[in-house]
Amino acid sequence: MIINNLKLIREKKKISQSELAALLEVSRQTINGIEKNKYNASLQLALKIAYYLNTPLEDIFQWQ
């Protein structure tokens, strides 16, 4: 199981879903879906999320 901390980290950094989506060149709905565990981010997208949030990938998506 993967624990998804994207919403928590994004909100801590005061970045909206729309802002993050624009940086990543995806839709806001994609970010929303990832945060609600409706969609799994591809490895490429997960790495981009970590880069733009300046946060280690394993802090955003944790295996349990």
Rank of each mutant, 00 (worst) to 15 (best):
D59K: 10
I3N: 09
Y39H: 12
A21M: 02
E11S: 08
K14W: 04
N40V: 15
L6F: 00
L20Q: 00
N40A: 14
R10P: 02
Q17G: 03
M1C: 14
F61I: 03
T30D: 04
I2P: 07
T55I: 07
E25M: 13
K38V: 13
E58W: 11
I31Q: 00
T30E: 08
K12C: 11
N5W: 09
A50K: 01
I34M: 04
T55P: 01
N4G: 04
S18K: 13
E35C: 05
Q29K: 14
W63G: 06
K36G: 10
L24Y: 00
K7D: 04
Y39T: 11
E58Q: 11
N40W: 10
Q64D: 14
N5P: 00
I15L: 12
I34P: 01
Y39I: 15
I9W: 07
K14E: 09
I60A: 02
E11W: 06
L57H: 02
N37R: 08
N37M: 08
Q29I: 09
Q29G: 11
E11G: 05
L47E: 12
K14N: 14
T30K: 09
S18Q: 13
Q17T: 07
A22D: 12
Q64T: 11
M1F: 13
L43A: 07
F61R: 00
R10F: 06
I15F: 09
N40H: 13
N40M: 14
L8G: 11
Q64S: 14
L23M: 14
T55N: 02
I2T: 10
L43W: 13
A46W: 13
Y52S: 05
K7M: 08
L45F: 08
Q62T: 10
I34V: 05
K13R: 13
Y52M: 11
I31H: 00
E19I: 07
L24D: 00
S16W: 05
R28I: 15
S16Y: 04
V26F: 02
S16D: 04
L47R: 13
I34D: 01
Y51G: 06
I2W: 13
L45Y: 01
Q29Y: 09
E11P: 01
Y52K: 05
T55E: 11
K7C: 09
E19K: 14
E11T: 11
L8H: 14
Q29L: 09
K12G: 12
I60R: 00
I60M: 05
N5M: 06
L53W: 03
N54R: 09
Q17A: 07
L47V: 12
R28P: 15
T55D: 02
Y51P: 00
E25L: 10
R28L: 15
I60T: 03
I3E: 08
R28W: 14
E35A: 02
N40K: 15
N40R: 15
L43I: 12
N32Y: 09
S27D: 13
E25R: 14
Q44R: 12
L47G: 07
A46H: 03
A41H: 04
D59M: 10
I49M: 06
K7A: 12
I31T: 01
L53A: 02
K12N: 11
I3M: 13
I15H: 03
L45D: 03
K14C: 11
I49W: 01
T30A: 08
A50R: 03
L47N: 09
A21Q: 01
K48D: 05
N4T: 03
K7H: 07
I31D: 01
L20G: 00
A22G: 11
I15A: 01
